[in-house]
Amino acid sequence: MSRLTEANVKIAHEIIARYPRPKSALIPLLHLAQEQDGWVSDEAMAHLAELVGVTPAEVRGTCTFYEMFKLHPVGTYMVNVCTNIACQLLGGEELLHHAEKTLGIRPGGTTSDGMFTLEDVECIAACTEAPCMQVNYRYGVRLSTDDFDEIIDDLRAGRTPDKLITANPGDQIPSHGTLGLTRQHLDPDKAAGIVPPEQVTENPVWLTTTKGDS
C-alpha cells in the first residue's frame, strides 16, 4: 500500500535522471514518499531502495538522520514553533507554551483528531521576525498568541490562514509531506545532459571555444 503509486514512480524516475549517480536522489525521493503518505513507511523505503539500487538498510540509514522525515503517522499539519535564541528573546517559549495549552499536547505529540503535531524547533531563518513558527513549512511571523489561535481556527475550519505566508497569493497550505507546490521540470531537449562522472574525460568544450570571441 505504501509503495509509490504509478504516477509517483514516474516522478521518481524523472528525479533520479537528474543526478550523475542514482543514490543522490534519495532525499528528494524520501520527500516524495512522505508527500504521498504523510510519513515514510518501511514499504516505501524498500521501494525506494529498488528504485535507486541500494539496500533498504541504506535508505533507512539516510532517512533516520534527517529530522523532517517521520517514521510514523503525524498530524495533517506540522506546527513548528521556534525557540532558538532570537525567538527566545522575544517570546518564543511563551508562544510554545501557549501552543501546548491550545492544542493540548506536548512537543512531539499529535492531537487526537489527527489534525496537528507540535514541535519545538531550532532556528528557521526568520530571526528578525521573532517570534515565528512554520505550519507545514509555511511561515507565520511576529506572532501573538491571538495570531496563533487564529491560524489554528482557520485550519480547523478548512480556511487558508491569512497569517501564513505562501509563495503566491491564494496558494493552499498542503497537508504534511508536500513542500513546494511546483517541481523543477527538466526537458531532455533543453538540458545540457547529465552523465555519470566517469563518462566525462575532457574539459567542457566552452573553456577552449569561447575565449572571449563570442
Binding site: 513548528n80 512554520q134 513549512y137 509563495a167 513542500l179
Partner: peptide, 9 residues
C-alpha cells in the same frame, strides 16, 4: 534547506 518550502517553489 529542507524547511524552506517557499524558496524551493
Amino acid at each position: 534547506r529542507g524547511e524552506m518550502a517557499i524558496a524551493q517553489q
